[in-house]
Design a binder for these strands. Structure first.
Lengths: 242, 242
DNA sequence: TCAAAAGTGTTCCGAATACACCCATGC
DNA sequence: GCATGGGTGTATTCGGAACACTTTTGA
């Protein structure tokens, strides 16, 4: 199993009789984005066997001196150039037969990026990277379909109870943009007036003295997500719910 | 690092220059119980170095041909003799320095058992096992305190949104018993009438034609949790909430 | 007949819903 | 002035909280 251009990963499990078992540990990242009112996920086309040319989640083996979460952050940074992005571990996949060549246990992470800001970088282990609508996915390598579905499920669950969704929007956004995002995430419709009332009463949005420009209608006020404020409220027992 | 009485676990990560890195994968189980109106957790006293004699979560290394979840189930069965118990993976702990001797990544599982039914079994790697109140815990080996806290957090979260708590009760229970369990789990009080109304309207309890016996007051009706019914309702979009 | 818990009914209040309406801007 | 989305106000409904009350059993 190749790891980068010039090193092999061969973990071994020593059995009582001096036999070794090959064994690997990796991370896989489900990178979510939001474009044109739809939730997207970033996939790469594999340039190596196994599953050469098939679409897959981006991932890599964990280095001996590397924390799990650092491995995941590195993977994201190598592909997108983005640092300090929201990232969350959601599940470890450890079935014996999930990898055709070796025993590889992989830990799934998902991250949320504002996908309009940049173009993903193709790298040595990936021919190309592309955003896919989460409702229109290609066939995936390994058990990445399972991993991705679990990631989507976790995201939808998290978004309901924590103010996570903001990470998918630009820093400054309008209330309608926020509403449309949540409608895409949760697969439902909200009443405009009620949505505004609810989110504003939470006091986790900081109104900016700016408005959207170059629109052919009344320009909307821009808001910023106020993390500090949310953290303070959370300590006081407030719980986000949408 | 010893694994059982007669076998060693030595996973190795092969660096480019034929050097190997020792590397382990384990599971740790947070076993929850419920006794005398309090949530308990089962801990064992280590009989081996490192952290000899200290209290710890029960766990073990994963075998080469063993699925992660099977490893967790085996650990539980070896300690308690119980099979087919509710068990859920909650997090993978992969910091480089979490184990003093080696790089060991561990995956945390929690399970819910009706702890009145049996006594835990002391085994080769554990002097003794004991139930601890989750609000009165001893110092723990490794990073088991972190793991345990994360397990508790996950349980409390899950219990709110899924009918999980029932696993902690005997098969047949009264509504008051259920209420007291949820009060212990969530750390709050419920109004008797409202609690009953809410839980009964969910239609996930099957009333039995039996009553509690040998009580010096009006005997309470017994109920059973109806998993089938819940699964059907869940498919129709129902979501448990307490 | 009394204690203790089982079990029910009713009122009240606040939050969520539905919906109607006015406002600002570009073309 | 009209199309488009921004933004606000209000009546109605529904579910949860609070609390009072009746019932059944053993001692």
């Amino acid at each position: 199993m190749m790891k980068g251009p010039n090193s092999y990963y061969i973990s071994k499990y020593k059995l009582p009789l001096d036999e070794y078992f090959t064994f690997g540990l990796s991370v896989d990242c489900v990178i979510f984005g939001y474009q044109e009112g739809e939730i997207k996920v970033l996939l790469v086309q594999r340039s190596l066997e196994p599953f050469k040319d098939q679409w897959a989640l981006i991932g890599d083996l964990v280095e001996p001196d590397q924390n799990l979460c650092d491995a995941a952050n590195n993977v994201l940074e190598r592909l997108t150039g983005l640092k300090n992005i929201y990232m969350k571990q959601f599940f470890a996949f450890g079935n014996v037969d999930r990898h055709p060549l070796d025993r590889v246990v992989t830990v799934g992470y998902f991250s949320l990026v504002n996908s309009l800001n940049y173009n993903p970088i193709a790298s040595s282990w990936a021919k190309s990277a592309k955003w896919f609508n989460i409702n229109d996915l290609p066939e995936l390598a390994f058990d990445h379909c399972t991993i991705l579905q679990k990631g989507i499920e976790t995201l939808k669950n998290e978004v309901r109870h924590k103010p996570t969704g903001f990470e998918l929007l630009p820093l400054k956004f309008t209330l309608l943009e926020l509403q449309l995002l949540y409608e895409a995430l949760l697969g439902c419709k909200f009443d405009k007036s009620n949505f505004r009332k609810k989110i504003l009463e939470m006091n986790i949005l900081k109104p900016l003295n700016e408005t959207k420009e170059n629109v052919s209608h009344r320009p909307a006020k821009l808001f910023k997500y106020d993390v500090e404020r949310y953290k303070k409220l959370e300590e006081e027992g407030f719980s986000f719910q949408l």
